[in-house]
Design a protein around this nucleic acid. Structure first.
Lengths: 291, 291
DNA sequence: CTGAAAGCGCTTACAG
DNA sequence: CTGAAAGCGCTTACAG
């Protein structure tokens, strides 16, 4: 029988199997913006974490179309669990949770969240950036953040403010700008900051794409980096080392995040029901030329 | 009834539905290396092409683990069709085709292929690059290619050789190197070329990542680009405009490729059985500093 | 037009 | 240990 199966290249019907067993042996990764190199790196990490296990990984990118609708596709047991690397994770986590799917978040969930989470220690990331800039003599430090209503923007803003206060630096609302994590958005936000009557001398940009945008804005104004404006980013994507001046940034570790997230999810799929865990992945400052 | 359904947040069981209807309303995109920015851009294009249609997109990345195994997951009607953006598409297309799944390839399939394909006109891409380098006075032009056994490496090599012959330029086997489409691979291949007794003065690199690697190799040898070595890439990823010197390259149009691929696949899913189509997406040369 | 039944292709608990 | 039956949750063709 087995021989004939092999000969005919027989493949069990996936849906019949899944319907009968009530499990699909696959998991979903929801990604905020696959076009941001951080996310492919994260996806790679998840794949690494899944090696030696027969769960398949499906990637769903949020940026186009309605995230809610994409999530609904996945519910109804299309996957056994999900990893969420999206900005606004509350509503989608709730949706998934209601459907009984285990979820692990990449990012900083609220303290009462019922799911596992892995992230950088985003407040410390921001604080490290501010401390570095301060050590270089900067007083007027701006924040170019992602939406600060959602993780990780919220945590990075908290860390920024706490560090500024701790160092006795001025905390002006006008020196904080929310953008959308993209290069263009970062350029627009930095442009607004630079056009202020009393502009900042340094900017902490909450990701590298926005930091590169800040470089763009400085260049179009004929400002030198880091002399006229120091900029520091977060992520350490490949482009950070390619751009001129090369970007000083805080390197996260998407591979580790992905691996850990996969391991946590696999543990839940094995039935583990221990309390939600939160694991913090170390970061490090990479000093280059822009600050 | 509908009200109660909405209240209970009822969601039909996906597998039961798929088993009964024999279709999943979702399609797969297989990607060679999601870490190469070309592929996220392509994925975006496919998503755009799927807008207004209720097919869900699942992304499977080939680079980690066994591609064959990933494909098998998808067979058994987990998806209704697949878009293949992988180097070695023959075997996986055959596998999918045997299972009765419509397939469209991104890339250059053999003339007798039974599936739709969309790609750049890769031979012309290579020829344009060679012609540009020749117009700049170069005679000894090297090729840093991806594996030339698979599309699009095969087509780009053909175009390279044809153009060299047409222009009466020397075609030395030693001036052709196969790498693996990565930055490191490109650097290693360029290093070998530069260490030749009579090294090339220009290199056509079949993608930007390898071209950036060629820049790396030139720099570690203290060579100036483009004076000592001119380099031209293909793709026009974001990094091409970021690196110094900025990369002269041939811009492909992954968004258009993705859209067209989606449209072709959707047409097949609607039952269209016309002969396989091959659509070529226009490219254009972007002149920057490296050549 | 409505409603009960058969069927999609598996797995698993159970009778023999 | 083997094999026939029931069940997973839908859809669809068909009888009423």
């Amino acid at each position: 029988v087995l021989k004939v199966m092999a000969e005919l290249d027989f493949r069990p019907n996936f849906f019949a199997q899944a319907l009968a067993t009530q499990r699909s042996r696959s998991i979903a990764l929801f990604t905020q913006d696959i076009t941001n190199p951080f996310y492919p790196a994260l996806a790679r990490g998840v794949q690494h974490g899944l090696e030696g296990d027969d769960h398949a990984l499906m990637l769903f990118d949020a940026a186009t179309g309605d995230l809610g609708a994409r999530v609904d596709v996945v519910i109804g047991r299309m996957v056994d669990g999900a990893i969420l690397a999206v900005g606004d994770l509350e509503p989608v986590a709730a949706r998934l949770g209601r459907a009984g799917l285990p979820v692990v978040a990449i990012g900083f969930p609220p303290p009462d969240a019922l799911f596992d989470a892995v992230s950088a220690d985003d407040e410390v990331v921001a604080a490290d950036a501010v401390a570095y800039l301060h050590a270089r003599g900067h007083q007027r430090i701006a924040l170019v953040n992602g939406p600060s209503t959602a993780a990780p923007g919220a945590a990075r803003r908290m860390g920024f403010r706490a560090a500024m206060a701790r160092l006795g630096l001025p905390l002006e609302p006008g020196l904080e700008a929310d953008a959308d994590w993209t290069r263009d958005g970062g350029a627009a936000a930095a442009a607004r900051l630079l056009d202020l009557p009393d502009p900042p001398t340094a900017a902490f940009c909450a990701n590298d794409l926005m930091a590169i945008g800040a470089l763009d804005a400085a260049f179009t104004r004929g400002l030198r980096v880091p002399e006229d404006l120091a900029v520091i980013g977060v992520d350490d994507i490949d482009a950070a080392g390619l751009v001129r001046p090369a970007l000083t940034t805080i390197a996260l570790d998407p591979d580790a995040m992905g691996r850990v997230a996969a391991a946590l999810l696999l543990r839940r799929l094995r039935g583990d029901a221990s309390p939600p865990e939160r694991v913090l992945i170390p970061h490090r400052l990479v000093e280059r030329e822009s600050a």
